[in-house]
Simulated assay, not measured.
Amino acid sequence: MKTDSAVQNGILFVRLSGDLIGSPDTQQLLQSVDQHLGEELLHCAVDLSGIRYINSTGIGVLVSLLTKFRSRGGELVLINPADHPRKMLALTKLNAIFSVADDEAAAAQLLKTA
């Protein structure tokens, strides 16, 4: 899995590609987000359009990220999940928990109103 992150207008944008299935990649993602949390960020948008496959560990990572931001009074939005992640979110009924946006601009708008 490849991870790219940037802060824009007080929002942490994380772009993921490949397979979100655990092991060192997910630990690196969590550590990267933790470093940004030290910057007092409250909002995060995770772009899942490049994720081909996600398993239960990957779902757990997304829930962990959501919990990190919500426990600080913030919010996390998923951007344009690809087909398999979208199906997994529906299967686990987490599509009712996560906010989903079509693109970065829509995610930023959702986070501004959160």
Rank of each mutant, 00 (worst) to 15 (best):
K2W: 10
T3Q: 09
D4Y: 14
V7G: 11
Q8K: 03
N9C: 03
I11N: 01
R15Y: 06
R15G: 13
S17Y: 00
L20P: 03
I21C: 08
P24Q: 15
T26N: 09
T26D: 13
Q27D: 15
Q27N: 15
Q27V: 13
L29V: 11
L30Y: 03
V33S: 09
D34K: 15
H36T: 07
E40S: 12
E40C: 11
L41D: 01
H43V: 02
H43Y: 11
H43I: 10
V46T: 04
D47N: 10
D47G: 08
D47L: 11
L48N: 01
S49D: 02
G50T: 03
G50E: 02
I54Q: 04
N55P: 11
N55Q: 08
S56F: 05
T57S: 12
I59E: 13
I59H: 06
L62Y: 00
V63E: 06
V63Y: 07
S64G: 04
S64T: 14
S64F: 06
L65R: 09
L66H: 05
F69E: 08
F69V: 05
R72M: 14
G73S: 12
I79N: 01
N80Y: 04
N80S: 12
P81T: 05
D83V: 09
D83S: 03
H84Y: 07
P85A: 07
P85Y: 00
R86Y: 10
K87H: 15
A90E: 14
L91W: 04
T92H: 01
K93G: 02
L94N: 13
L94P: 13
A96W: 00
I97G: 04
F98W: 00
A101F: 11
A101H: 15
D102F: 02
D102G: 15
A105W: 00
A107R: 03
Q109F: 00
Q109V: 01
L110G: 02
K112W: 02
K112P: 00
